[in-house]
Design a binder for these strands. Structure first.
Length: 188
DNA sequence: AGGAAGATCTACT
DNA sequence: GTAGATCTTCCTA
């Protein structure tokens, strides 16, 4: 089952938490699959760490788009994968920070050249392993017709929260969510 | 042209 | 665990 568009049309902190355990799928040479184990929520104009904070630009216009579409941008030479949340014209989203590789591990290894443990344990690592770049901006993840979509999965274990990682000016509450003890989480 | 940025890799204490 | 070099776009001038 694929998570419906409605699932994303909510507060990003709720979506970030509830999407843990779901499966990121990409149609490639083979099928690539990874379980989402770490996320962060980002708001719009009220969030200094958000890419939407300084207003609409050509590169970030996707944040004003429909819930359940992709927004990808570059930081320090890494593409970072975000899914847009809330209704159209309300900029917000969640950052996928880490996944646990399930299918297509050999193809991921070819791209990354490292062992399984380090394949997708960080936001820039997973986009390289899955070969996701800005050309995927605007992809709808709630339909199996897309190259990239997200399947509902089983959440097991305990969810932990923390402040966001690497953010200069964070908001006072915890907006990072991860599965406690999962070896693919970038930092416990 | 120069610098910052939601990170990663390597090499250490 | 932390420190420093380096990664590639976009912002500001």
């Amino acid at each position: 089952m694929i998570l419906p568009r409605k699932f994303y049309e909510r507060d990003p902190a709720i979506v970030a938490k509830e999407i843990l355990g779901s499966i990121l799928v990409k149609r490639d040479q083979s099928i690539l699959k990874g379980k989402i184990v770490e996320t962060e929520a980002y708001y719009g104009l009220s969030d200094p760490a958000s890419r939407a904070f300084k207003g609409k630009r050509d590169y970030n216009k996707w944040m004003w788009g429909e819930a359940g579409t992709l927004f990808i941008y570059m930081v320090h030479g890494n593409w970072l994968l975000n899914i847009i949340t809330e209704k159209k014209d309300i900029p917000s989203g969640i950052l996928i920070r880490a996944v646990e590789p399930i299918d297509g591990i050999e193809e991921m290894k070819k791209r990354r050249g490292v062992n399984t443990k380090n394949l997708t344990s960080g936001p820039g690592k997973l986009t390289k392993a899955f070969d996701i770049t800005k050309r995927h901006n605007g992809t709808k993840v709630y339909t199996p017709a897309s190259e990239i979509f997200i399947e509902k999965g089983k959440m097991h274990g305990e969810i932990k929260t923390s402040p966001r990682i690497g953010v200069k000016e964070d908001l006072p509450h915890h907006l990072r969510f991860f599965i406690k003890g999962n070896p693919f989480v970038s930092r416990q």
